[in-house]
């Protein structure tokens, strides 16, 4: 509601400025709706294959061999090898294993005995990963020599997802 006196020249520029402000907010809203839509779309697209456990490959809907999937499992102790900038390891879950090959260093806190999610495709018996993410647990344990020695002495076991 514009109550600015029609005859006042001093206040005349106020009305267009308010309209501009309003259109600014409308533009922000449009951007937000588009951003929201993009996020939901990305999520739904991504959620389809986020993620299968190693033992579900070939047995669960959406985890068919040959299609692009994410697979979760634990890096088996003693299986990690780096050859010519390629990272090779065995991923284990519920006693089922799969050989994984990844070009480069996975980064993060990637190591043996840690759960990971590998994104890629199963070619033959080997899972060719294009991305590896470390799935760390919700336990926070202080790093001290005693515990570290104890942890090193333990044989890692596959963690439930």
């Amino acid at each position: 509601m514009d109550l600015t006196p029609r005859t006042s020249e001093v206040n005349a520029p106020l009305a267009p400025r308010k309209r501009n402000t309003k259109w600014g907010y409308v533009a922000v809203l449009v951007v937000i709706v588009v951003a929201g839509g993009t996020i939901v779309t990305k999520f739904l697209t991504s959620a389809i294959d986020y993620y299968c456990n190693v033992d579900e490959i070939g047995s669960r809907d959406g985890c068919e061999p040959g299609r692009r999937i994410r697979v979760q499992g634990t890096v088996e102790q003693g299986s990690l090898k780096s050859v010519n900038n390629s990272t090779n390891f065995v991923m284990i879950f519920n006693e089922k294993t799969i050989q994984v090959v990844y070009e480069g260093d996975p980064g993060g806190i990637f190591q043996e005995c840690i759960p990971v999610v590998a994104q890629g495709r199963l070619v033959g018996d080997v899972f060719e990963a294009t991305r590896i993410e470390v799935k760390h647990s919700n336990s926070y344990v202080a790093d001290n020599t005693e515990r570290l020695t104890k942890a090193e002495a333990q044989v890692c076991s596959p963690q439930a997802g």
């Binding site: 990305k42 697209t45 986020y50 996975p106 993060g108 990637f110 590896i132 470390v134």
Partner: peptide, 8 residues
């Protein structure tokens, strides 16, 4: 930790 800034 994960090795990536973002995951969907």
């Amino acid at each position: 930790t994960w090795g990536s800034y973002w995951a969907w």
